[in-house]
């Protein structure tokens, strides 16, 4: 019991919670935007790999860190354009296209990695984002190091949540986007293009997913490894459902998930961790995601036109 208390009062634990949440916040917001507009984006897992690779590769080739983030966003938006082209105007199955995009984006990243570094066993490291303590706030006990001594990308992740929430609920653009996912016929009646809104949403959302991937190689770590995304994308899809398609709730869910994930990592290092196989701890995040889906299943307000292709003239 004292061990649990020790974990909960340590500043480094809470810093880890925020660090684990950051890439998931970007990707969850990205998926949320897509689904709010009516498009399920199963490309998320592969797009995160592509973002992780593209951002890291750009910086390794000499680009600045923020340029790397922008390139990751661009790479994600390009795969988003592919996904959107196939699923929106052509109305192809969002499941099939999404899984195809995941495979394509993942293998494209691995292929490019092998071309750039043919014989390398340990990938080169980059000068990643460093912690940027906010003067004054960073000195608050426990909270300070956890919240205000993170890298600039973490601050950007939380800012992204705020911006997404504001745009979706406080602007005409956000209203049109949500309407495209609820009642596309009404959007078309307003003279707006459902196709355009949905495609734009998928591109921006995919860009955010890729930035989430880039967080892994440019802030959490400083190198690109195969399998490093490791199911985080699928977890984010569960988090969107858990958050009932609302940015604030989804962000809270992400923090809760990160809390449990950081907690299981710490627990592995205690006496309990010596007795219990480590795989049990590693399973917890996935089991928690499944549990979250079950808990929310009754109450979820799914966007009415999610996964329903829009064809003009059809009702």
């Amino acid at each position: 019991m004292t061990e649990v208390v020790d974990i909960l009062v340590s500043a480094s634990f809470w810093a880890a919670v925020i660090r684990i949440a950051s890439p998931l916040l970007f990707a969850t917001m990205g998926e949320l935007i897509c689904e709010r507009a009516g498009v399920l984006n199963l490309g998320i897992e592969g797009i995160m790999v592509a973002g992780a690779f593209a951002g890291w590769m750009a910086v390794w080739s000499g680009a600045g860190l923020w340029t790397g983030v922008a390139i990751a966003f661009g790479a994600g938006a390009l795969f988003g354009l592919l996904h959107a082209t196939l699923t929106v105007p052509f109305g192809l199955s969002q499941h099939v296209v999404g899984l195809g995009v995941t495979l394509l984006a993942t293998s494209a990243s691995y292929y490019a990695y092998r071309l750039a570094l043919p014989q390398v066993t340990t990938p080169p490291r980059i000068e990643a984002f460093q912690p940027l303590p906010i003067p004054g706030l960073a000195d608050i006990p426990i909270l300070g190091p956890a919240l205000f001594a993170q890298t600039a990308m973490t601050y950007l992740a939380f800012a992204t949540v705020a911006v997404v929430a504001l745009v979706l609920w406080r602007t005409p653009l956000g209203l049109a986007l949500r309407a495209a996912g609820e009642n596309p016929a009404a959007v078309a009646a307003q003279g707006l293009s459902v196709t355009g809104i949905r495609m734009g949403a998928v591109m921006v959302g995919s860009g955010l997913m890729a930035v989430g991937g880039a967080f892994l190689t440019m802030s959490a770590f400083d190198s690109f490894f195969f399998e490093m995304v490791n199911g985080r994308g699928w977890v984010c899809i569960a988090l969107v459902v858990f958050g009932a398609w609302r940015p604030g709730k989804a962000a809270l869910g992400t923090l809760l998930f990160a809390f449990f994930d950081a907690f299981q990592i710490r627990l592995q290092q205690t006496a309990l961790g010596a007795d219990v196989p480590y795989q049990i701890f590693l399973m917890l995040p996935f089991l928690l995601s499944i549990l979250a889906l079950i808990v929310m299943s009754r109450r979820a307000e799914v966007p009415a036109a999610l996964m329903v292709p829009w064809r003009k003239g059809e009702r």
Binding site: W234, I237, V241, M283, F286, I290, L293
Partner: peptide, 26 residues
């Protein structure tokens, strides 16, 4: 879970892949 509770099977089957591989490893 899908038929009784309406839980989307895409995500649950995907997540079970990771759980099962860890279980086999264990």
């Amino acid at each position: 879970l899908k038929t009784k509770l309406g839980v989307d099977e895409v995500v649950t089957t995907l997540l079970f892949n990771f759980v099962m591989l860890l279980f086999v490893s264990m």
